[in-house]
Write a protein that binds this DNA or RNA. Structure first.
Lengths: 401, 401
DNA sequence: GAAATTTGTATTGGACCTTTACGAACGCGT
DNA sequence: ACGCGTTCGTAAAGGTCCAATACAAATTTC
């Protein structure tokens, strides 16, 4: 049990701490006056003034107007200077590459969605670099002005070897060092995160999980996955594999005896992902079923075979969420991914009804994602903003001797 | 996503922070010299001296001897004054009540194990109060000298209502306010924690999980449960129900169709707990099986039916740990509880072998508890010590105007 | 247009920590 | 036994930072 010991501080670190606190409150509260900052931080007015002077000199905050109060002198308002930092968010999806350039205030300045072709490292890198240059040029900043780049990819990024595991859709990226080549996209520091994890952060920051302390995002689509956000922080697990619900031992039979390929892919993913639904429909007698969307449409139209296939899916999803609830005891689970979003109307009610029968605990609320396909990108922005805020501040502090 | 904002500090809070840091390092490093403390905290020698003077005046630390170095003046060593605080740990088990009185240094000064009778609130309270008085008297301190009392109980403590849920073995304790009556045992502040959670903390502090950041303790016995320790902190979940693996949807058939009572109890607990093993043995043809211990003994003797019953148990446990691994991605899982400890030799190997076939991820290490029945008690001591350290420090700081 | 109120800043004082310097204590070698 | 190098502990001086107080500036209300 490695317990983090309390840190000691010297006087000169106080200024850093307090400036950081002031900067953080400006982020949190938006345009805000000095008295409000004094209130929020517990610091005195003169201290706030000094901190604002330093932050202003460093170009991190700016005056933005006056607040007209009921009486008395109007207060100057301060806000984060948006151009103080830029976050490049990249979602490397199965069929699309999406990029967003956001300023430090979180405003999205430019966006690109590219239905890309090849996924081998060299082609993908060239494509990403070109798109990134497009975006920065469009906004009128240089490549070097990007504070931080955040990549969302499927699979698990092994930071020691630079390899990407469990991402069969990205051939060539599982070789050692392959992920490190992403540094070529932008001269900034960069982060590589699992796409489902980012989607979870996105939903937790901009979506339904905003005020929820124990939250998870469950993605069901071509594959399955889960991102866990606890107390506002992503939970990654010992090796970054937390939330790999593909491997939940849920479904009929025993993978060892049945099908080793399915075992490698994971029991839950095999039965519950899009092609698992198609397989279920076929097994039930609908030989011509080709896509999950088709099955859901038919179920909405009242087709009995399709409805039974959906029932099977409901059962699998309910069992998975039951397992997650038994382990994590969450407040809210948001359903996403292709199946989760497009089939959400058919899944949500039955799953919610089924869950209390499986776990005699207070079940979590279950909702369908509001961000949809943008969840990954928005999560990358959120992660990037949090990190970029620290980066610009650290840069400033270092430059104040 | 509630993000905790950076706190601001004033100069006078620096002293508090630094004294806290010094005190923490003394805890962490044991008898330690001033130069070592300066090194560990990053503070200067004079500051350490001042902090030690204050802590000494408050009775929290004391000189303990000299360190003879290879050359130069010998350094005075400081350690926590054990009598500065006392933690009373209480394990309310199924057939035993165990109490321990530990000083602030963590030394166990007195212990009592009582094979108690009645479990209704009034009787149990009387018994606990008597035993607690015995312990304090034996050590020579007063009731009021106890800094903190930590109770370990089965079930989930609802802090809002003061009721204890999911603890069928403690009749009467599920009424609102019942748990609050535990305050009568000692005039100190008190905490009520789930026994399995405490056992997890015990193993994480004194047992096999000492240097592990992602850890869980899985208890299998009369019931089943899991305690999760992440980065040294207990993970409780949204309502304190995290780790209730009794409800993992693992086992044959569907509880809804089969047996509503089993559904209330939880699928996994029904099949994998001690009486689940007995039931499995009977189902396999051993009609006379009466206890899990008997089944394990027979399996060790080579009895075929018993060995098959153990195989069934292995399968269930492996599935449960697979689900836990898929969700949490742990480094280490420690197996405890009656079945876990006494049947560990038969379960460990087969489960470890089975797990990689169920999850294609790096599986966690699995070990059998070394603390055994003392895990709950030791966990209560660990939790109490952490908290008591803050309490005595806060008391001191408040008394220094 | 004056009073009331709120905002921003200048000044003073206090709390804290570090640096520097020096005396105290100890071991080792001669 | 004595000196020397080394380490430990403390004292004094200096610097940084923040709060409190006081006051000037700006704005609304009556």
């Amino acid at each position: 049990m490695p317990t983090d010991h309390q840190t000691a501080s010297t006087t000169s670190m106080l200024r850093v701490m307090n400036e950081r606190a002031v900067f953080g409150e400006i982020f949190r509260l938006g345009p805000v006056s000095r008295p409000e900052l004094a209130q929020a931080t517990g610091l005195s007015k003169p201290t706030i003034s000094v901190a604002l002077a330093n932050l202003g000199r460093a170009g991190l905050v700016r005056e933005v107007g006056l607040r007209a109060g009921p009486a008395g002198r109007s207060a100057l308002l301060y806000e984060v200077r948006p151009e103080a930092g830029w976050v490049l968010a990249v979602d490397i999806g199965r069929s699309f590459v999406r990029l967003v350039l956001a300023d430090l205030a979180g405003t999205i300045a430019a966006r690109v969605d590219d239905p890309s072709g090849s996924r081998n490292p060299a082609d993908l890198l060239a494509q990403l670099t070109g798109l990134a240059d497009d975006l920065t040029a469009r906004v009128g900043i240089g490549r070097a002005d990007v504070t931080l780049t955040v990549f969302g990819t499927p699979g698990i990024h092994d930071k020691d070897t630079g390899a990407l595991h469990l991402a069969p859709n990205l051939p060539g990226w599982s070789l050692p060092g392959a992920v490190d080549r992403l540094s070529a996209v932008s001269p900034s520091p960069y982060l590589v995160e699992n796409d489902t994890d980012l989607a979870a952060v996105g939903e937790a920051t901009y979506g339904l999980g905003r005020d929820v302390a124990h939250f998870a995002y469950v993605s069901i689509g071509t594959g399955t996955g889960m991102g866990i956000v606890i107390d506002g922080k992503l939970y990654r697990g010992a090796r970054g594999c937390a939330g790999e619900i593909s491997y939940l031992p849920i479904g009929e039979g025993d993978p060892l005896q049945d099908d080793p390929a399915a075992a490698r892919r994971g029991m839950f993913e095999t039965v519950a992902s899009a092609d698992g639904i198609v397989a279920a429909a076929r097994r039930l007698g609908w030989a011509g079923a080709t896509s999950a969307k088709e099955v859901f449409d038919a179920a909405r139209a009242g087709e009995p075979l399709a409805r039974r296939a959906v029932e099977v899916e409901v059962n699998h999803v309910a069992h998975a969420l039951a397992a997650v609830t038994a382990v994590l005891d969450l407040e809210l689970i948001v359903l996403g991914g292709g199946v989760g979003v497009q089939g959400g109307d058919l899944l949500l009610g039955p799953v919610q009804e089924r869950l209390p029968h499986l776990v005699a605990l207070a079940p979590p609320r279950i909702e369908v994602s509001t961000l949809g396909a943008d969840a990954v990108l928005m999560g990358a922005v959120a992660v990037g903003l949090t990190e970029a805020r620290d980066l610009v501040l650290a840069r400033t502090v270092a430059a104040t001797p």
